[in-house]
Each structure stands twice: as structure tokens, then as C-alpha cells.
Simulated scan of single mutants.
Amino acid sequence: MNDTPEPLEGTPLIAPSSTDHPLYEAVTEACRTVYDPEIPVNIYDLGLIYTIDINPENEVKIAMSLTAPGCPVAGEMPGWVADAVEPLDGVKQVDVALVWDPPWGMDMMSDEARLELGFM
């Protein structure tokens, strides 16, 4: 028998971001400076940044994925994101976690990314 509780119906697969935090916009802009070397679109618009969680102490937790688990830069990309966000004024600490659930899909891309890559 599986002891892992099933998610409650209606529970989002991706945790919500701290969009009302004063640092949220700066953190998203910093994430937009990071690119997958094989795709000419930033990782934020690709939909690889799942959650940006910022607590009252300005500690930032980012959950991100990659286009595929075998991505050649899988080990480096979280560090690139942390390096982009950490220098921001007010950020106390950054923790970037790679997650594979839910798996990334092309439907997670912004319209700008789809346009840039010729999918629209």
C-alpha cells in the first residue's frame, strides 16, 4: 500500500509564488537574465521557473525545472539562477531547487517565448 497521501482535489501542482512581495518583480527580472544555452529564450519565459517564494525575512526559494532531465546544464542551471538573484538589494538568501513534478511542457511557455521560437 502506498503511504504517500494523494494531493487534495484542487491543490495546484505548482505552489503559488509570492507575487505580492516587494522583491518579486526584481527576482523575476533576474530570472529573465538566465538562458538555457540551447534555446534563445530566457528560462522565466520558457516556464522553467515554477515558484518564487519569498518569506518576510527576504529569503528566496525558487522551484524550477528543465526542459528535460537529461539537459546538459542540469547541474549548473540552479547555480546560474542563484547567482542572478542573490546580488539583488534586499535578498538575504537564495535556495534554488530542481523539481521534475509536474514535468515541464511547451504549454508552460509565455506567448513571447512561443512567438520567439516560432510556435505561434
Rank of each mutant, 00 (worst) to 15 (best):
Y44N: 11
R114E: 13
V34K: 09
A26T: 05
I62D: 00
R114A: 06
I43H: 07
E6N: 10
R114I: 00
V27Q: 03
E59V: 05
M108K: 09
G90K: 05
V81D: 04
V96D: 06
M106I: 09
L13P: 12
P102N: 10
A97T: 15
A74G: 00
E25Y: 01
A30I: 08
E76I: 06
D3C: 05
L8W: 00
P7W: 07
C31I: 01
T4Y: 14
L98D: 06
S17Q: 04
Y24A: 02
V34M: 12
V91E: 12
M120K: 02
T67I: 07
G70I: 07
V81F: 02
T67M: 03
P5H: 09
V73M: 14
M109N: 07
A97E: 15
P56N: 11
V91T: 06
A15P: 01
L8G: 10
V73C: 12
D111N: 12
G75E: 13
P16N: 02
S18H: 03
R32K: 13
D3S: 09
A30K: 03
G105W: 03
P78H: 07
T4L: 07
T67K: 11
A74Y: 06
L13G: 13
A74S: 15
G90C: 03
D53K: 15
G75K: 12
E9L: 14
Y50A: 04
L98K: 11
P37K: 05
T19W: 05
G118M: 14
V96C: 00
D89Y: 04
G79P: 07
N58D: 08
L46M: 15
M106Y: 02
N2Y: 05
P7K: 03
I43K: 09
P103F: 01
M109C: 12
E86G: 03
P40Q: 05
P22A: 01
T51A: 12
I49N: 01
L46C: 06
P37C: 05
I54R: 09
A68K: 07
I52G: 06
G79D: 11
G10W: 05
P16V: 00
V34S: 07
M108H: 14
P87E: 04
G118S: 13
A26H: 12
I49Q: 09
E9P: 06
A26R: 10
E25H: 00
P78S: 08
A15D: 14
E29I: 00
D3R: 11
Y24K: 07
L23V: 02
G118W: 13
N58A: 07
A15S: 13
P37I: 01
A63E: 13
L66T: 12
T11A: 14
D3W: 00
E29N: 15
K92M: 00
V27H: 07
E25F: 02
V85W: 02
L66C: 13
M108A: 15
G47M: 05
E59L: 00
P40F: 05
E25V: 13
S110N: 12
G10T: 11
P69D: 10
V60S: 13
D111F: 06
I52L: 02
E112H: 14
W104N: 02
P72V: 08
D3E: 09
P12C: 01
P5E: 14
L23D: 02
H21N: 11
K61G: 10
Y35H: 15
Y50V: 05
